[in-house]
Write a protein that binds this DNA or RNA. Structure first.
Length: 286
DNA sequence: CGTGGCCCCTGTGGGC
DNA sequence: TGCCCACAGGGGCCAC
Protein backbone atom coordinates (compact mmCIF):
# COMPACT_ATOMS: atom_id res chain seq x y z
CA UNK A 1 0.00 0.00 0.00
CA UNK A 2 1.95 3.04 1.12
CA UNK A 3 5.42 2.15 -0.03
CA UNK A 4 7.99 4.86 0.01
CA UNK A 5 5.75 7.68 -0.96
CA UNK A 6 8.08 10.54 -1.58
CA UNK A 7 6.10 13.63 -0.89
CA UNK A 8 8.34 15.75 -2.99
CA UNK A 9 10.29 14.57 -5.95
CA UNK A 10 11.61 16.76 -8.74
CA UNK A 11 13.70 15.76 -11.72
CA UNK A 12 17.29 15.15 -10.68
CA UNK A 13 18.69 17.97 -12.78
CA UNK A 14 16.55 20.42 -10.85
CA UNK A 15 17.39 20.12 -7.19
CA UNK A 16 14.21 20.29 -5.21
CA UNK A 17 14.06 23.58 -3.36
CA UNK A 18 10.83 23.80 -1.44
CA UNK A 19 8.90 27.04 -1.86
CA UNK A 20 5.22 27.59 -1.23
CA UNK A 21 3.82 25.25 -3.92
CA UNK A 22 6.04 22.38 -2.83
CA UNK A 23 5.20 22.86 0.83
CA UNK A 24 1.48 23.04 0.04
CA UNK A 25 1.76 19.88 -2.07
CA UNK A 26 3.44 18.19 0.89
CA UNK A 27 0.73 19.48 3.24
CA UNK A 28 -2.05 18.06 1.09
CA UNK A 29 -0.34 14.67 0.84
CA UNK A 30 0.19 14.48 4.58
CA UNK A 31 -3.39 15.49 5.18
CA UNK A 32 -4.60 12.68 2.97
CA UNK A 33 -2.20 10.11 4.41
CA UNK A 34 -2.06 11.01 8.10
CA UNK A 35 -5.16 12.94 9.20
CA UNK A 36 -6.66 11.22 12.21
CA UNK A 37 -3.69 8.85 12.53
CA UNK A 38 -2.12 8.48 15.96
CA UNK A 39 1.63 8.86 16.29
CA UNK A 40 2.81 6.20 18.70
CA UNK A 41 6.36 7.48 19.02
CA UNK A 42 8.75 10.11 17.79
CA UNK A 43 12.51 9.98 17.63
CA UNK A 44 14.98 12.72 16.83
CA UNK A 45 17.96 10.93 15.34
CA UNK A 46 19.81 14.23 15.14
CA UNK A 47 18.77 16.14 18.20
CA UNK A 48 19.95 19.51 16.93
CA UNK A 49 17.43 19.42 14.09
CA UNK A 50 14.69 19.78 16.72
CA UNK A 51 14.75 23.34 17.97
CA UNK A 52 12.94 25.31 20.60
CA UNK A 53 10.93 23.83 23.44
CA UNK A 54 11.30 20.07 23.76
CA UNK A 55 9.27 19.55 26.90
CA UNK A 56 6.21 17.29 26.69
CA UNK A 57 4.27 16.77 24.54
CA UNK A 58 7.42 16.91 22.44
CA UNK A 59 6.99 15.97 18.82
CA UNK A 60 3.39 14.81 19.34
CA UNK A 61 4.27 11.31 20.53
CA UNK A 62 1.02 9.64 21.58
CA UNK A 63 -1.07 12.23 19.78
CA UNK A 64 -3.37 11.85 16.83
CA UNK A 65 -2.81 14.28 13.98
CA UNK A 66 -5.91 16.42 13.82
CA UNK A 67 -4.95 18.61 10.87
CA UNK A 68 -2.12 20.11 8.86
CA UNK A 69 -1.52 23.79 8.45
CA UNK A 70 0.76 25.92 6.33
CA UNK A 71 1.83 29.54 6.21
CA UNK A 72 4.32 30.52 3.54
CA UNK A 73 6.98 27.82 3.54
CA UNK A 74 6.16 26.73 7.08
CA UNK A 75 4.26 23.50 7.67
CA UNK A 76 2.63 22.37 10.89
CA UNK A 77 1.24 19.14 12.26
CA UNK A 78 -1.58 19.93 14.68
CA UNK A 79 -2.12 17.37 17.40
CA UNK A 80 -5.53 16.36 18.70
CA UNK A 81 -4.88 18.08 22.03
CA UNK A 82 -3.77 21.27 20.30
CA UNK A 83 -0.02 20.88 20.62
CA UNK A 84 1.82 21.14 17.36
CA UNK A 85 5.03 20.67 15.50
CA UNK A 86 6.14 23.10 12.85
CA UNK A 87 8.49 22.04 10.12
CA UNK A 88 10.65 24.16 7.91
CA UNK A 89 12.14 22.31 4.93
CA UNK A 90 14.96 24.78 4.35
CA UNK A 91 16.47 24.15 0.97
CA UNK A 92 16.90 20.38 0.92
CA UNK A 93 14.30 19.10 3.36
CA UNK A 94 11.52 16.68 2.53
CA UNK A 95 8.99 14.50 4.28
CA UNK A 96 8.35 10.89 3.43
CA UNK A 97 5.70 8.40 4.53
CA UNK A 98 6.81 4.78 4.28
CA UNK A 99 6.28 1.37 5.79
CA UNK A 100 8.14 1.05 9.08
CA UNK A 101 10.28 -1.83 7.83
CA UNK A 102 11.76 0.02 4.90
CA UNK A 103 15.26 1.39 4.97
CA UNK A 104 15.67 4.96 6.16
CA UNK A 105 17.16 7.26 3.54
CA UNK A 106 20.46 8.96 4.37
CA UNK A 107 20.08 12.19 6.35
CA UNK A 108 16.84 11.12 8.03
CA UNK A 109 16.81 13.28 11.17
CA UNK A 110 13.38 12.74 12.72
CA UNK A 111 11.14 9.65 12.54
CA UNK A 112 7.54 9.40 13.72
CA UNK A 113 5.94 5.96 13.93
CA UNK A 114 2.20 5.64 13.38
CA UNK A 115 -0.26 3.31 15.02
CA UNK A 116 -0.74 1.48 11.71
CA UNK A 117 2.87 0.56 11.02
CA UNK A 118 4.06 3.48 8.96
CA UNK A 119 6.68 6.12 9.51
CA UNK A 120 6.76 9.81 8.78
CA UNK A 121 10.36 10.81 8.13
CA UNK A 122 12.00 14.20 8.00
CA UNK A 123 15.00 14.05 5.69
CA UNK A 124 17.30 17.03 5.15
CA UNK A 125 20.85 16.57 3.82
CA UNK A 126 21.94 20.18 4.29
CA UNK A 127 20.12 20.71 7.54
CA UNK A 128 19.03 24.24 6.74
CA UNK A 129 15.58 23.11 7.76
CA UNK A 130 14.32 22.10 11.17
CA UNK A 131 11.50 21.02 13.44
CA UNK A 132 9.98 23.09 16.26
CA UNK A 133 7.59 22.05 18.99
CA UNK A 134 4.82 24.24 20.36
CA UNK A 135 2.33 23.77 23.17
CA UNK A 136 -0.51 25.16 21.11
CA UNK A 137 -1.41 26.59 17.77
CA UNK A 138 -1.61 29.98 19.44
CA UNK A 139 1.95 29.57 20.63
CA UNK A 140 3.08 28.58 17.15
CA UNK A 141 1.41 31.70 15.82
CA UNK A 142 2.96 34.01 18.39
CA UNK A 143 6.39 32.36 18.40
CA UNK A 144 6.94 31.96 14.71
CA UNK A 145 4.16 32.64 12.24
CA UNK A 146 3.39 36.12 13.48
CA UNK A 147 6.78 37.16 12.13
CA UNK A 148 5.76 36.16 8.64
CA UNK A 149 4.08 38.37 6.08
CA UNK A 150 0.83 37.50 4.29
CA UNK A 151 0.76 34.19 2.48
CA UNK A 152 1.93 34.66 -1.11
CA UNK A 153 -0.66 32.28 -2.60
CA UNK A 154 -3.47 34.69 -1.79
CA UNK A 155 -1.48 37.92 -1.85
CA UNK A 156 -3.68 40.94 -2.53
CA UNK A 157 -2.64 44.16 -4.21
CA UNK A 158 -3.10 46.02 -0.94
CA UNK A 159 -0.96 43.52 0.97
CA UNK A 160 1.84 43.75 -1.57
CA UNK A 161 1.64 47.52 -1.59
CA UNK A 162 1.99 47.79 2.16
CA UNK A 163 4.88 45.30 2.08
CA UNK A 164 6.91 47.36 -0.40
CA UNK A 165 6.04 51.01 0.07
CA UNK A 166 8.72 52.04 2.56
CA UNK A 167 11.37 49.60 1.41
CA UNK A 168 14.45 50.95 -0.32
CA UNK A 169 15.83 47.48 -1.07
CA UNK A 170 15.43 45.92 -4.54
CA UNK A 171 11.95 44.51 -5.14
CA UNK A 172 13.44 41.03 -5.38
CA UNK A 173 14.97 41.33 -1.90
CA UNK A 174 11.59 42.27 -0.51
CA UNK A 175 9.87 39.34 -2.22
CA UNK A 176 12.44 37.00 -0.67
CA UNK A 177 11.98 38.56 2.78
CA UNK A 178 9.56 36.23 4.55
CA UNK A 179 8.56 39.00 6.96
CA UNK A 180 7.25 41.00 4.00
CA UNK A 181 5.61 38.19 2.01
CA UNK A 182 5.64 34.53 3.03
CA UNK A 183 6.31 31.70 0.62
CA UNK A 184 8.40 33.07 -2.24
CA UNK A 185 11.92 31.77 -2.87
CA UNK A 186 14.53 32.50 -5.49
CA UNK A 187 12.88 30.60 -8.33
CA UNK A 188 9.38 32.02 -8.08
CA UNK A 189 10.67 35.53 -7.36
CA UNK A 190 12.40 35.60 -10.74
CA UNK A 191 9.45 33.98 -12.52
CA UNK A 192 6.89 36.36 -11.03
CA UNK A 193 9.00 39.45 -11.75
CA UNK A 194 9.51 38.36 -15.35
CA UNK A 195 5.83 37.66 -15.75
CA UNK A 196 5.03 41.09 -14.30
CA UNK A 197 7.69 42.69 -16.53
CA UNK A 198 9.44 44.31 -13.56
CA UNK A 199 13.22 44.31 -13.14
CA UNK A 200 14.37 42.53 -9.96
CA UNK A 201 16.76 45.39 -9.16
CA UNK A 202 14.07 48.07 -9.06
CA UNK A 203 13.78 49.86 -5.73
CA UNK A 204 10.70 48.38 -4.08
CA UNK A 205 9.12 51.65 -2.99
CA UNK A 206 9.34 53.03 -6.54
CA UNK A 207 6.79 50.60 -7.92
CA UNK A 208 3.59 52.34 -8.98
CA UNK A 209 0.02 51.29 -8.24
CA UNK A 210 -0.46 49.48 -11.52
CA UNK A 211 2.70 47.47 -10.86
CA UNK A 212 1.50 46.47 -7.38
CA UNK A 213 -1.65 45.05 -8.94
CA UNK A 214 0.19 43.27 -11.74
CA UNK A 215 2.90 41.83 -9.50
CA UNK A 216 0.42 40.58 -6.89
CA UNK A 217 -1.59 38.88 -9.64
CA UNK A 218 1.50 37.34 -11.24
CA UNK A 219 2.78 36.05 -7.89
CA UNK A 220 -0.55 34.31 -7.34
CA UNK A 221 -0.68 32.85 -10.84
CA UNK A 222 2.92 31.62 -10.86
CA UNK A 223 2.41 29.88 -7.53
CA UNK A 224 -0.95 28.43 -8.54
CA UNK A 225 0.44 27.09 -11.80
CA UNK A 226 3.36 25.52 -9.97
CA UNK A 227 1.02 24.02 -7.39
CA UNK A 228 -0.99 22.33 -10.12
CA UNK A 229 2.22 20.99 -11.70
CA UNK A 230 3.56 20.00 -8.28
CA UNK A 231 0.71 17.59 -7.84
CA UNK A 232 1.91 15.66 -10.84
CA UNK A 233 5.36 15.13 -9.36
CA UNK A 234 4.02 12.95 -6.56
CA UNK A 235 4.90 9.32 -7.02
CA UNK A 236 1.43 8.14 -6.09
CA UNK A 237 -0.12 10.54 -8.56
CA UNK A 238 0.45 8.33 -11.55
CA UNK A 239 -0.39 9.40 -15.02
CA UNK A 240 -0.26 6.73 -17.74
CA UNK A 241 2.87 8.38 -19.06
CA UNK A 242 4.60 8.52 -15.67
CA UNK A 243 5.63 11.55 -13.71
CA UNK A 244 7.08 14.14 -16.03
CA UNK A 245 5.78 17.67 -16.40
CA UNK A 246 7.03 19.23 -13.21
CA UNK A 247 7.08 22.97 -13.00
CA UNK A 248 10.74 23.11 -14.04
CA UNK A 249 9.67 22.68 -17.67
CA UNK A 250 7.48 25.78 -17.34
CA UNK A 251 10.14 28.05 -15.97
CA UNK A 252 10.70 30.96 -18.29
CA UNK A 253 13.78 32.60 -16.78
CA UNK A 254 15.18 30.79 -13.75
CA UNK A 255 18.19 28.71 -14.79
CA UNK A 256 18.09 30.13 -18.32
CA UNK A 257 20.64 32.94 -18.19
CA UNK A 258 22.31 33.39 -21.58
CA UNK A 259 19.36 31.88 -23.38
CA UNK A 260 16.74 33.75 -25.38
CA UNK A 261 13.83 35.28 -23.49
CA UNK A 262 10.72 33.22 -24.37
CA UNK A 263 8.82 36.46 -24.84
CA UNK A 264 11.12 38.52 -27.05
CA UNK A 265 14.23 36.42 -27.86
CA UNK A 266 16.52 38.93 -26.17
CA UNK A 267 19.33 37.21 -24.24
CA UNK A 268 18.49 36.80 -20.55
CA UNK A 269 20.95 38.42 -18.15
CA UNK A 270 22.09 37.30 -14.73
CA UNK A 271 23.59 38.92 -11.65
CA UNK A 272 23.55 38.63 -7.89
CA UNK A 273 20.66 40.50 -6.32
CA UNK A 274 19.87 39.96 -2.67
CA UNK A 275 22.92 37.63 -2.62
CA UNK A 276 21.05 35.26 -4.92
CA UNK A 277 21.43 34.38 -8.55
CA UNK A 278 18.95 36.49 -10.47
CA UNK A 279 17.86 36.15 -14.10
CA UNK A 280 15.89 38.74 -16.02
CA UNK A 281 15.15 40.00 -19.51
CA UNK A 282 16.64 43.45 -20.23
CA UNK A 283 14.01 44.04 -22.90
CA UNK A 284 10.76 42.80 -21.33
CA UNK A 285 11.39 43.92 -17.77
CA UNK A 286 11.53 47.59 -16.82
C1' DC B 1 16.61 49.96 12.27
C1' DG B 2 17.10 48.66 7.43
C1' DT B 3 20.18 46.67 4.39
C1' DG B 4 23.78 43.93 2.34
C1' DG B 5 26.91 40.34 2.91
C1' DC B 6 28.60 36.19 4.93
C1' DC B 7 27.94 31.67 6.62
C1' DC B 8 25.87 27.31 7.75
C1' DC B 9 25.85 22.37 4.87
C1' DT B 10 26.32 18.75 1.28
C1' DG B 11 25.15 16.99 -3.49
C1' DT B 12 25.93 18.10 -8.07
C1' DG B 13 28.27 19.26 -12.17
C1' DG B 14 31.70 21.53 -14.85
C1' DG B 15 36.39 21.73 -15.99
C1' DC B 16 40.79 19.87 -16.47
C1' DT C 1 37.38 8.59 -16.82
C1' DG C 2 38.07 10.50 -12.44
C1' DC C 3 38.96 13.93 -9.29
C1' DC C 4 38.45 18.43 -7.30
C1' DC C 5 36.33 22.48 -6.30
C1' DA C 6 33.01 26.10 -7.08
C1' DC C 7 28.36 26.67 -6.71
C1' DA C 8 23.54 26.35 -5.27
C1' DG C 9 20.04 28.28 -1.79
C1' DG C 10 16.74 29.83 3.07
C1' DG C 11 17.37 32.38 6.57
C1' DG C 12 20.02 33.83 10.87
C1' DC C 13 23.34 36.86 12.27
C1' DC C 14 26.45 40.71 12.15
C1' DA C 15 28.60 44.97 10.76
C1' DC C 16 27.67 49.21 8.81
Amino acid sequence: MHTNLHLSDAPRKDPFVPELPEVETTRRSLERLLSGTRLTSARAIRADVVRGDRTPPALLAGQAIASLARHGKQLALIGADGACVSIHLGMSGRLEVAESGTRRPPHTHVVWTTEDGRQLRFIDPRRFGGVWTHRSLAELQSDRWSRLGPDAASLTTAQLRSAVTIRSAPIKSVLLDQRAVAGIGNIYADEALHSARIRPQRTAKDLVNQEHATLARKIRSVLTTALRAGGTTLRDYRTPEGTTGAYSAQRLVYGRAGQACPGCRQILLTDQTAARTTVWCPNCQH
